[in-house]
């Protein structure tokens, strides 16, 4: 039972931090219907900049985070303006391939500019795990969960209460109707990509501190897909629920069955789970159900 609880709690915290990455994806999909295959690479870029600011330029952690936030916000806006705006109105397939291209472009550029060696980010958190009974949680994971919940609350407020957030929802509902109501689409798109850039900083910091900053960080972006498929592509609550389910499932199966099959189940089970969801309920648990004959 102790083993089970430990695995479950670890899995749930892990899932929460997956949801942190998934948030950036869901926000973009919700607002602009762009499928962002480069979400992992954006996170890697953010984490690398934050790490380099501390290591090479000797900035304190706070300063480095501030600089990274500014850079990533600008990056998001630039990305929207240069790459994605010309793609508006093109088939979905083109959009997917463009973000795939962006992903490997970023991976190459980051590796060339800052090298491939693993860099460390120290978030100045205590290392001693917090224990409740037999279950212990690392402070870093706890911080990740905290940041995720904070961002979820923030985005929920943004989408439900704030003028700009409601405008974004209107755009995601029907772009032409939103334009007719006087909403400026370019502003909304730029705003959402900026927010996605900022979110990638949060994900990059937590994951970078957890597993180190190198190109493998970007592979986490692929873990996002089981999470968002399960939760529903355009649902923020879905992202977090999906994250929890995926995290718990993969940690439990890996804990119990990894020794029997030679490991690696963590990268396998989420995708099997996702295939099952795709066949049964492609729009996910909380996604908007769009009935379309295929």
């Amino acid at each position: 039972m102790d083993f089970f609880l430990t695995l479950l709690v670890k899995g749930l915290t892990l899932g929460c931090i997956y949801a942190l990455v998934a948030l950036g994806f869901v926000l973009i999909y919700k607002a602009t219907s762009v499928i962002n295959f480069a979400v992992g690479e954006m996170m890697m870029l953010a984490a690398t900049i934050a790490a380099v600011m501390v290591i090479s330029y000797g900035l304190p952690l706070g300063g480095s985070i501030a600089v990274t936030l500014v850079i990533m916000a600008l990056f998001g806006i630039l990305l929207e303006r240069v790459v994605l705006r010309p793609m508006i109105g093109r088939p979905v397939i083109g959009m997917i391939m463009a973000t795939l291209g962006l992903g490997i472009f970023l991976r190459g550029v980051v590796n060339i500019t800052w090298g491939v060696e693993t860099k460390a980010i120290d978030l100045l958190l205590p290392r001693q795990p917090l224990s409740v009974g037999s279950v212990s949680v690392a402070p870093l994971d706890l911080a990740g969960v905290g940041i995720t919940l904070f961002l979820v609350a923030l985005f929920s407020y943004f989408f439900q209460r704030m003028r700009q957030g409601i405008a974004v929802r209107a755009v995601s509902d029907d772009q032409q109707a939103a334009m007719a109501m006087g909403i400026r689409l370019p502003t909304v798109f730029a705003l959402m990509w900026m927010i996605a850039g900022l979110t990638s900083v949060a994900g990059g910091l937590v994951w970078g501190a957890k597993i180190g900053v190198d190109q493998y960080l970007s592979l986490l972006g692929l873990k996002v897909f089981p999470v968002v498929i399960l939760g529903g592509l355009d649902s923020i609550a879905g992202a977090i629920i999906g994250g929890l389910v995926v995290g718990a499932t993969e940690n439990l199966t890996a804990g119990y069955f990894d020794p029997h099959v030679g490991g690696g189940l963590k990268d396998f089970v989420p995708f099997v789970l996702m295939m099952a969801v795709l066949v049964v309920r492609p729009y996910g648990l909380f996604g908007r159900e769009i009935i379309e004959r295929v």
Partner: peptide, 17 residues
């Protein structure tokens, strides 16, 4: 190897645009 990624990623985007 890294340059290849950067070049192809950039070219994919460029051609699509």
């Amino acid at each position: 190897a890294h340059l290849r990624f950067a070049v192809f990623g950039g070219l994919i985007m460029l051609f699509l645009m």
